[in-house]
Each structure stands twice: as C-alpha cells, then as structure tokens.
C-alpha cells in the first residue's frame, strides 16, 4: 500500500509498519524506479539513504548494519546511514539521505 501525505514541500511516502523493521536492521524500499534503504537503529532512530552502494550498485538492504554504519554485502564498503558519508574503501562516494518519520505506527520516507 502506498499512501501519500504532503508536508509543505516534502512528499511523504508510506514504507512499512513501524514494527516491520526490527531495531538494528534495514529494509529495501522501491518507489517509482528508485530504490532506497530504510534503517532502524538500535536506539530506535529511523533514517533512509539511497538503496544502492555507490561503489558497484549492490543493494545495501542485504548488508550488515552496526550502530550508524551500513556495510555493503558485496565488498564491505561502509557508509554512515545518518549522513550518507562513505566511511571505508571501496566506497568513496557518499550516499544521498532522505528524511524519515513515523506517524500512526507507519514509517514514511520524505521524497521530492
């Protein structure tokens, strides 16, 4: 189900139920030809980045999340999920990040 809600300039897109994402985990979310990685940290913060590693286009949702760092499943390139900053070779190019909020027990990603 995709529900849309306008919040001034941001278009909020429904991702999943808040409890569908466990603490310290990540899921893949595809929307209009784009793929995203949506994270829930161990201290219950939610955030989102581009879904594909900037090194060789592998889905980060299959990777390993520890604290604020997501590690690419193929080559172990590392990114800070809060800032998108590349933190370790072979990842050299930062990821884009997107706002995330939880409303009515749903996780929403802010696009547009």
């Amino acid at each position: 189900m995709i529900s849309k809600e306008n919040d001034t300039m941001t278009q909020w897109i429904d991702v999943c139920a808040a409890d569908a994402l466990e603490p310290d985990d990540v899921i893949r979310f595809d929307h209009e030809g784009q793929t995203f990685a949506v994270y829930r940290t161990s201290d219950d913060a939610y955030c989102a980045t581009d879904g594909l590693c900037t090194h060789e286009q592998v889905h980060l949702a299959d990777g390993y999340l520890e604290g604020r760092i997501i590690e690419c499943p193929k080559h172990n390139g590392r990114f800070d999920i809060m800032t998108g900053a590349a933190k370790g070779a072979p990842a050299c190019i930062d990821l884009a990040t997107y706002p995330v909020k939880v409303a009515d027990e749903r996780v929403l990603i802010g696009l547009g």
Partner: peptide
C-alpha cells in the same frame, strides 16, 4: 590488493 580483491568478488 584491496581493490583487486573487490573486483575478484564482483
């Protein structure tokens, strides 16, 4: 070798 090994895995 870090980079060559990344390619080996790709």
């Amino acid at each position: 070798w870090r980079w060559s090994h990344a390619r080996h895995h790709t």
